[in-house]
Write a protein that binds this DNA or RNA. Sequence first.
DNA 1: ACTGAAACTGAGATTGAATTGCAATTTAAC
DNA 2: GTTAAATTGCAATTCAATCTCAGTTTCAGT
Lengths: 143, 143
Amino acid sequence: MENKIFRNFLGEKGLKPTKERIAVLSEVFSFHGHFEPEYLYLRIKNAGSKASRASVYRTLSLLVECGLVKKVTRTEKGNIYEHTYGHSHHDHMICDACGEIIEFYSEKLENLQDEICAENSFAGSTHTLEIRGHCKKCRTKQS
Amino acid sequence: MENKIFRNFLGEKGLKPTKERIAVLSEVFSFHGHFEPEYLYLRIKNAGSKASRASVYRTLSLLVECGLVKKVTRTEKGNIYEHTYGHSHHDHMICDACGEIIEFYSEKLENLQDEICAENSFAGSTHTLEIRGHCKKCRTKQS
DNA sequence: ACTGAAACTGAGATTGAATTGCAATTTAAC
DNA sequence: GTTAAATTGCAATTCAATCTCAGTTTCAGT
């Protein structure tokens, strides 16, 4: 599981699995959904563990580096992350009215993108598709 | 052309087409490609016009609001913009090695996204697709 | 267990893009 | 022209993110 993956990753880099790093890891995987670094920091505090803001940021970078966490998007106010282990790849729709984030996945879309990369002699490794608009709820509310 | 569009937009909002705003507008449309606010600010200075950083930022927001300019992406170091008037919609591939930005467009992709929105009862208004990887040049260089 | 070198941490300082407050200036309607 | 409203630039501010560095922890070697 993610704990093992992270420890292996740290080992390979000569880094140490400290309390703080493990606390961040656990907290990231203790819930589902998207989060901002500050929110994560507060959760950790609240959970009785301790890790400074600096450590949260530092660990978050490590988690992204080893593929357990992904940077979803950048808002006006900062980065948004999500954990990816156990989650297959997906893209996002974001409601401009309420901020809700809907995840979706389309095989066709993935294939089409591979095609497009090939056409451009581009070796795509990752992608981010973000559709903005209004979710069902906010669409109704408007009218 | 863009000048007229911007002036109309300003007029409707009771805003004034000042030298500074027009300088920003002209400079944005004086070249093709992507830019950062700071780069734009320097270009304006260099062109002999004058507009403070504050005015550049303020005007850029107006240009985005009226649809002449689009925020392409947010990097570690800030926003990247492009002018959109006269440019049809497209998406981007960004080379992680050299930073090159390749634009592409696919009708199929657009349609597929509309389908996906419909499936999720989502009213999509805009989207951003960013494929990251290595461009042809950097792929070759690597081997 | 001990020891020491290397890795790590937290608090606060720092950075840098972006925004804002405000006094002075410009605009344009009358 | 005159004047009210809009605009400007500077400097101050904001805020996420990063960095500094002295003190702390980890762990391999003994």
